[in-house]
Design a protein around this nucleic acid. Structure first.
Ligand code: SF4
Ligand code: SF4
Lengths: 137, 137
DNA sequence: ATAAATTACTACCTCAGTATAGCATTTGCA
DNA sequence: TGCAAATGCTATACTGAGGTAGTAATTTAT
């Protein structure tokens, strides 16, 4: 499962923040550390700020800080704020309305995979990504 | 996990064929039954034919038939012939080279989900999609 | 006060996936 | 033989994700 580029950048970003000792992060600094296109990352930061995951501090000495506790930020809600979460939780064939009564031919084969994926997205938080032994962000 | 439109169409197509009593299928017929844009589906059929999953019969009374046993056609190899299979088997953050020694922050959280997904794609075949109780294709 | 450092906004460019259109080619049946 | 029914090929248009550029707005250090 590959996330959209934007979602991937965002998770790397938040994961970098939670694994750092710093409190305030500047866009330029982050784009350099994470090797994400500067202007693109800035857009992401602004959006994350609007979504309430981080808080922006404007002006000199400004930057971004977490706006809520990282253990309250699930992968699910991050991805959902960026793209259609249904791309991952909805299903393989992209039917709109699915049910046990009106399944497609893949339904029962895919069900257990879907459960696992759903659970992963709903229960994993940014705080869970804190770890000493990370090689790359 | 949502497949690309093309992959989705393709699996619906093959699944429809394996669940039908007919032997030969015409493009026009399939596009109507599956409500897939005619010209687009024709392109897919030609590609599937080139990939060797189905065989085309040209001329009057022509159409398409399975070129190999459906229990030899895994979701994996179908998807792989259409788009980059790495979109699903490769990982969340889209890093090129991943290893236990050089993991990203999501690695250990995602590992079991990935295993499940990989296994699903590698072991599920078109023949497995044969089923009496399918509501939609 | 002013300059420097920072984020916010708007408009545009590019590319791959999706979709459409028209014509060429093959083959069986009347 | 010739027409009709089918697939094959090529060129074009549309759309949204990804990415770039320039300018405006905000705040603090000096
Ligand atoms: S597998 Fe089930 S939930 Fe997914 S598209 Fe098919 S019917 Fe819907
Ligand atoms: S989760 Fe593991 S395999 Fe996936 S991108 Fe991260 S390091 Fe690579």
């Amino acid at each position: 499962m590959k996330l959209s580029k934007t979602s991937g950048y965002t998770i790397r970003l938040l994961s970098y923040m939670i694994n750092s000792d710093l409190q305030v992060f500047q866009a330029g600094f982050l784009s350099e550390k994470l090797r994400i296109p500067d202007k693109y990352l800035r857009k992401i930061l602004t959006d994350l700020s609007k979504s309430g995951f981080i808080k922006s501090i404007r002006g000199r000495e400004g930057g971004y800080v977490f706006a809520k506790n990282a253990n309250k930020i699930t992968l699910w809600c991050v991805i959902d704020s960026i793209e259609n979460i249904n791309n991952y939780t909805g299903c393989v064939l992209g039917f709109g309305e699915c049910s046990e009564e009106n399944p497609c031919s893949l339904h029962y084969e895919y069900l257990p995979v879907r459960e696992k994926l759903l659970n992963f997205l709903k229960t994993t938080t940014i705080a869970d990504l804190k770890n000493e032994n990370i090689g790359k962000f």
